[in-house]
């Protein structure tokens, strides 16, 4: 899966689950998710579970941090680092 495809899947998940009605263009790769209030703590947990199941990685409790989950960019970079680390 390319990085772009991965970002698109994450974007679609966030739009459907947490921003119903929003246009995809308004959720940019660098839009802050945690610090803006788009994702609260419960929403982040659901997103983490989605990422684990969809991309086949295990997210440790301390990794579900603002640094790793504050934008589509940071989430995809995190997934890729986990996949590289695991292989």
């Amino acid at each position: 899966m390319t990085t772009e495809n991965m970002k698109e899947e994450i974007r679609q998940y966030i739009l459907t689950e947490f921003l119903p009605g929003e246009k995809a263009a308004n959720l940019r790769d660098d839009t802050p998710l945690r610090t803006s209030g788009i994702l609260d703590s419960v929403a982040t947990l659901r997103l983490v579970t989605f990422v684990e199941e969809r991309f086949g990685i295990q997210v440790e409790a301390h990794e579900a941090s603002v640094e790793n989950f504050d934008s589509i960019n940071s989430i995809s970079a995190f997934i890729e680092s986990k996949k590289t680390g695991a292989s």
Partner: peptide, 19 residues
């Protein structure tokens, strides 16, 4: 405003549990 804008605006003016 976009929905992202509204969410951010509410985050700046309301406690998280009210967003």
């Amino acid at each position: 405003p976009s929905i992202v804008d509204m969410r951010t605006f509410c985050n700046d003016h309301l406690p998280a549990y009210m967003n």
